[in-house]
Write a protein that binds this DNA or RNA. Structure first.
Lengths: 332, 332
DNA sequence: CATGGGAATGCATACGTATTCCATTCGAGG
DNA sequence: CCTCGAATGGAATACGTATGCATTCCCATG
């Protein structure tokens, strides 16, 4: 059924290896022959078999990307630039969506169908990196990392971003401040909270546990946590959310509860997704360059595959920037 | 470097074919041998090479899914259930995101690395289906189709959905009605508009061209079209949008323009994405079962691959349902 | 005119798995 | 004790491409 290089060879009156060489622009084949082969390949609509090539070259030019839930608006904004950059680098992207790192079937990663892996869902207690190391499978962390040395990672200055928010809230006069942070076993959750706490402490502001919630970086986390935080004896006047998706959940919960933002409550996010600037939200948040974050991860992975990366690991950190919009206000 | 079935064979003291048979539960290998082989495979952490298997079996157990833009909130809600259903059917999903059908490199589809393709971005004038037909590559349309007979497609009753909206608007007393429809070369755009127009006509309501906009199913389409429609001499009192994403763009534009919804303007969407029920929107829309739409497409494709589908094509149509929320009101 | 050398191409084979076919062993029945 | 068939496993091979090595051919040089 399928056309092979043998078919092309027969039509062009040459051997199969010559077809392979001609189509790959090997200089050892004459211009005349190359042209003849091209014509024949064209005529037959020949497309080289990927499996054959993979088996022969031991390389697939394909990279796996592990994410948890595509319906979370965060991931598409990572995947799109990742896809484009990988394509530019001559690789294809294989998307693996699983509930968690642990659920990723090893076989899918280790069956020689991938040249490398981008981990966008790492937790600090994940066993997956060690497994990949053991099998010599190149990988990089994107956005989240494990926090261990020797990692290859493209990340954001999460701690710095958290500090930015704390500074701003302190300057605006807020004292009863709450946080809806990401999961404690993610560096994005942990470090944003850390920077936030440190800078709050510098300003002499405490963050008692009953004004703190933690959860997955999902809409529901913000939507469900906000009412509980507002139930406290001393209601907070400001909430820092682990990321924009959580913040948007919180904004919707505020609207449902009749709490006015920013008059009654200041809400601040993290990431600056396109959605954050929608009129209905106008979310004050912390920006970083998500496109560059992804591109950088792609380039780092390819360098690692090519053996051009620092053998001791590389950690690329992007800066953050405060983006004032309409969900923050001075404490009344 | 990589462990092969030969390594396992050596360790277990059997031949390579026996390893293949043992791990695939071929009954021609004794229980004792099977156990021995399993042990050896386990010890070596053996994972069969996908390329080798593909070359030998001429099947990849992998299905390609073509979408345009993942950052469009619609697609993730298609892809997630598609991924799950394909996985349940024993296939992996390969995501191909391209600007348009036409930009999809043929090689990627025809290099024998896919057993089938799901087209989620078909336009009525696309050349891709014909190319796939020519090479005998099984495919199905998801959501959009070409409208030709003989297609394999999982779609929604778009015309019926459009009618539902027109009926409702007519009953609510609206007469100056506008539409922001999808692209005319998509069946989703065309048929929703068609049903809408037909039912409006039944009610004796016209839809002049200056109250109509068309564009891609994107946020920007709604955001940019609404102000123009509101500029007309006779401003519309209701707008039907091609889908929820467009409607959400329109809602944000209304907010920016100071137009109150639903008091001044009724806005209605299509799809009922989870986002439509967010407090900030509470979008009145037309629901269909997006999960089932995707699952159905996956199952249809697998049946086609297995040769179990109707050779004359199959068209699976899901019903629609009107979902009243908070963006519609009686004409003042 | 013979020989050396380079350019162009073919031959043989490797990659890893699955499968067809054949060889061996063993047990049962005559 | 022989034969036959079933059970089991091995040898050989196919899948499609890429590549090291051998071969051919032609031309230039001595």
């Amino acid at each position: 059924m399928a056309i092979t290089s043998h078919d092309v060879a027969r039509l062009a009156g040459v051997s199969q290896p010559t077809v392979s060489r001609a189509l790959r622009d090997d200089r050892r084949v004459s211009a005349a022959t190359r042209e003849k082969v091209r014509k024949a390949a064209q005529a037959l609509n020949y497309v080289p078999s990927e499996a054959g090539r993979t088996l022969s070259t031991r390389s697939t030019r394909r990279i796996g990307v592990i994410v948890t839930d595509l319906t979370n608006p965060f991931y598409p904004h990572v995947i799109a630039p990742l896809h484009d950059e990988l394509q530019a680098l001559g690789y294809r992207m294989m998307l693996l969506t699983e509930r968690s790192d642990e659920a990723v079937a090893e076989e899918k990663l280790l069956d020689q169908s991938l040249d490398g892996v981008v981990l966008a869902t790492a937790t600090t207690d994940s066993a997956l990196p060690a497994q990949l190391d053991r099998r010599g499978m190149p990988y990089v962390f994107l956005n989240r990392e494990t926090g261990r040395r020797g990692d290859y990672a493209s990340v954001v200055d999460n701690e710095g971003g958290g500090r930015l928010v704390a500074h701003t809230l302190a300057e605006l006069g807020h004292r009863r401040i709450a946080g809806i942070f990401g999961a404690a076993n993610t560096t994005t959750g942990r470090d944003r909270e850390l920077g936030f706490r440190l800078a709050l402490a510098d300003a002499g502001i405490g963050l008692p546990e009953d004004r703190v919630a933690r959860g997955a970086f999902e809409y529901e986390t913000g939507y469900e946590a906000l009412p509980r935080l507002l139930d406290a004896a001393e209601t907070p006047t400001a909430v820092f959310c682990g990321n924009d998706v959580v913040a948007i959940g919180a904004l919707n919960a505020a609207l449902a509860a009749g709490v006015r933002v920013p008059d009654d409550l200041t809400v601040i996010g993290f990431d600056d997704l396109p959605m954050a600037s929608w009129e209905v939200f106008r979310l004050t948040t912390v920006r970083h360059d998500l496109r560059e974050l992804s591109r950088q991860a792609a380039r780092l992975l390819v360098r690692r595959i090519d053996g051009d990366a620092d053998p001791d690991g590389e950690r690329l950190v992007l800066p953050t920037e405060f983006v004032p919009r309409a969900t923050h206000a001075r404490h009344p």
